[in-house]
Nucleic acid binder design. Sequence first.
DNA 1: TAGATTGTTAATCGATTAACAATC
DNA 2: TAGATTGTTAATCGATTAACAATC
Lengths: 208, 208
Amino acid sequence: MDSINISQAVIKRLPRYYRYLGELKDEGIERISSRELSELMHVTASQIRADLNHFGGFGQQGYGYKVRNLYDEIAKILGLDKSHKLVVIGAGHLGQALSNYVNFERRGFHILGIFDRDPKLVGKKIRDVYVAPMEELEDFIRCNDIDIAVLTIPKTSAVEVAKTLVDCNIRAIWNFAHVDLAVPDDVIVENVHLSESLMTLSYNLSRM
Amino acid sequence: MDSINISQAVIKRLPRYYRYLGELKDEGIERISSRELSELMHVTASQIRADLNHFGGFGQQGYGYKVRNLYDEIAKILGLDKSHKLVVIGAGHLGQALSNYVNFERRGFHILGIFDRDPKLVGKKIRDVYVAPMEELEDFIRCNDIDIAVLTIPKTSAVEVAKTLVDCNIRAIWNFAHVDLAVPDDVIVENVHLSESLMTLSYNLSRM
DNA sequence: TAGATTGTTAATCGATTAACAATC
DNA sequence: TAGATTGTTAATCGATTAACAATC
């Protein structure tokens, strides 16, 4: 239970364990050994045991892991037992797509506001939320205690909006803009750079 | 110039170098040293030089790198000098968002077809392309020499569709479904698991 | 030439894996 | 108890970085 100093490599693997355990749970499987899980996921059993042991001894010698229990423990580790308040900034195609995605809601990520500077989009209803003008963003974040901002705007505006977000004491930014945001250490930035993912694919394609 | 056996860690960094070099180029900057670039990107100069040297000696001692030249070389390494033919499978919100994204087109990723099994979406026009029914997918891929399939459908159908794609000799799958696709070694899969990205963010948030 | 900076080696650091004692 | 499998250590592997000779 290091709590601090767990490498991002380990963290990035947890959601995948979580997904497999969820599927096992849904299939009604109650226990699983690290070896069985390793064969399912195509990773080493050593890695699974080492990864999990960063957070505690969830298994039992001679038995393995209780699927349900491990599933719940990983949820807690990932903070999925708590709910989060989000705003989506940029109501273009991608912003709308993310706002419409019901699974985030199910996991406790609640989209309370959607903002855009384009007057043509303001007022549009996306699921239960009306797109609001950018001018209302700051007040909204402060008044509604928003944790996470989803940035789906072009990179030029993203840098500027990120500054505003930091001023509003946002805690995390899920950044889809193709730019590296400079924020204080206590603000978390998780980047999704789709074009970089596509370029990686392109590279691997060209080496075939 | 190893050509083969370059680690994915190196590959994943190339698009970021490419982005910074593109910006420098647009600013009219002609040369840059690894040290200058390292300060800009917050990585070590050693890493930049080592990464680039996997692909050739693009620099010049005592001078540094020519921005324009290095930009073009990385484009070639990433296969961005060639054009690619894509189909988008799943015309839901995310499929539409990706189909509408003009920057992919600019980089030579041409979306030639969009498919969905929902009759309500079939016939809908997204930019220049009409959504076609899933029944036409196989013939379309074969007749149009499609390289890349973008999978934006739920995970249950994704596994099955991936099999079809493999049968059609697709070369690469850009997979947005929350599932690990089992494909032969010569088919490339690049995953974008948005929910895993959000969980990573959630983890980091809960440790603050 | 002198100064600067690359390309590359060797040293370091960190992550993965094999092995096994502990123990259910 | 005997068998199984964890938790954890030690060995291995790979990636990063510091250092510097080569050279523009």
